[in-house]
Design a protein around this nucleic acid. Structure first.
Lengths: 140, 140
DNA sequence: CTTGCACCTCTAGTCGCTAGAGGATGTAGG
DNA sequence: CCTACATCCTCTAGCGACTAGAGGTGCAAG
């Protein structure tokens, strides 16, 4: 077996070097074996695991959710109901966040459009911020 | 003048009591005068300022952006170009975030739909997470 | 053999709060 | 006036998920 350094692992998985060490420190990744000079030596399986974590993080899953997903992955005979539930919960979160951001976007657009590019005392941006009652879109 | 306690200020502005103290500590809100017994005594203007901050936070502006917006509000003769720029930048951020979340939503939906509710080794949720190449939507 | 990069551990910082300890003040009822 | 109780005070530490930096060691190429 060729030894995979932490730098290689980082490059291949797309996770930064300090983040790899961080994941090890919180027990998301098993501590790898070490070289004679005390340097980490990873296995290909570790790269896959790191890629899994990275992808899940990109999808916005929290570390604790990922921890659960990883234990599910480690034991393929389990029911995937938990994985399904976690993904569904995340989907609901994302949908809510999108709705909220759309309302936000509308309000920011109104603010920016209303700005006459003059002085602050006529600025709609400042004005709207100061007076929530001027919000056209009920969101927050 | 009637004295406004921190609790009243919090209730009227919708900012929590510890958060009001936090805003004071970071200099976003001027330190108010104190009662004989060392308790904070706010002015109506402080309530407006807190409401402004809260609204801006709800719109996702960062504290440093709010600090700038507040100094602009404090001097109404300035050009509102900065306020305009800050709001526009925030708008761009929000639009980007929405796009990214939409892609995410699509991917999560594919994952959840593909789940046969069986065992983990057939679970599309786990599978897609493990292999980024299966992503139908190029986003991250 | 030296240069220089990659690696090691450890601590502290980021952002925007939030929680809790331990004590002082203010107010309403008896 | 006394007591109960809510509210206030300061201070420190914690959250999530890293990121930055100090100060030192390993290793491979020229």
């Amino acid at each position: 077996m060729k030894k995979i350094t932490i730098g290689e692992a980082a490059r291949q998985s797309g996770v930064k070097v300090p983040t790899v060490r961080y994941y090890e420190s919180i027990g998301l990744l098993a501590a790898p074996s070490r070289s004679e000079g005390n340097q980490r030596s990873f296995e290909p399986a570790d790269i896959s695991r790191l890629a899994f974590i990275r992808h899940a993080r990109e999808l916005g899953f929290e570390i604790e959710a990922i921890r659960t997903l990883l234990t599910l992955q480690d034991d393929p005979h389990q029911s995937c109901a938990s994985a399904d539930a976690i993904a569904k919960a995340r989907l609901v979160e994302v949908e809510q966040r999108i709705r909220s951001l759309m309302a936000l976007k509308a309000e920011l657009e109104t603010m920016v459009e209303g700005c006459g590019h003059g002085r602050v005392d006529q600025c709609r941006v400042i004005e709207v911020l100061a007076d929530h009652g001027q919000c056209t879109h009920p969101h927050h």
